[in-house]
């Protein structure tokens, strides 16, 4: 759980920001803009992108080719954000995203990562025993589906494009988006109708 920052760390941060501004690395405005855009981002953005990909073949192709452009097409500013890659689940493969080194997460389209995503347990176990981790989420994959763990180690950020659940024929993108949870966007859960 988040605790109020100590006076000491607030003072340290203030001095750090002052140094960055003094050296011309950043302006106070840039910092405020970045905080505002990170605060605005939430898994609803990723969910809308997935729902649109389920209902619009052209958008799906764009999403898989260039996640950043696909996010921009939904009105998300990707300026300064790392490249966004999108991992397509199929009948044969299910993707699970982790960052074993730290906490790389597609913040531009999912917002802040949940606490568990940054935990040592998730980071260590997702690459070593992904199926046990999925089982603890209540996520069981059909027979014949391989797990592909994506360890997000470098310049890209990764989001999962899950499969559209059965029983959603005729649904519009808005209704479909309501099925796509934060957990489904990193592959620990599956969307359910």
């Amino acid at each position: 759980m988040a605790h109020a920052p100590s006076a000491e760390s607030v003072a340290l941060l203030d001095r750090f920001v002052a140094a960055l501004v003094a050296k011309g690395v950043l302006t106070e405005d840039q910092i405020a803009t970045q905080i505002a855009s990170t605060d605005r981002a939430s898994p609803e953005i990723g969910a809308r992108m997935v729902a649109r990909a389920w209902t619009d073949a052209e958008y799906r192709a764009l999403l898989l080719r260039d996640g950043g452009q696909a996010a921009e097409a939904m009105g998300v500013s990707m300026a300064g954000a790392p490249p966004l890659g999108v991992l397509e689940d199929t009948d044969k493969v299910h993707h699970l995203v982790v960052c074993t080194l730290c906490s790389c997460y597609p913040r531009a389209v999912l917002g802040y990562p949940p606490h568990w995503y940054k935990s040592a347990a998730y980071r260590a176990r997702a690459v070593r025993e992904p199926r046990a981790v999925l089982a603890e989420w209540g996520t069981t994959l059909p027979d014949g589906v391989a797990v592909k763990v994506v360890d997000s180690t470098a310049d890209f950020r990764w989001m999962v494009l899950p499969q559209r659940p059965a029983g959603t024929e005729g649904w519009d993108a808005g209704r479909l988006a309501s099925l796509v949870t934060r957990d489904a966007l990193v592959g620990v859960a599956l969307p359910r109708a």
Binding site: V127, R128, V147, K148, V149, D151, T153, A154, D155
Partner: peptide
């Protein structure tokens, strides 16, 4: 240059399900 490199998951750990993989960005 950066690459997406795929590894056989069970052989990394001597446990796991055949066919599972790990995909990692490597320079």
């Amino acid at each position: 240059p950066l690459y997406h490199v795929r590894f056989d998951q069970p052989s990394l750990w001597n446990e796991g399900a055949a066919g599972d993989t790990v995909l990692v960005e490597l320079y």
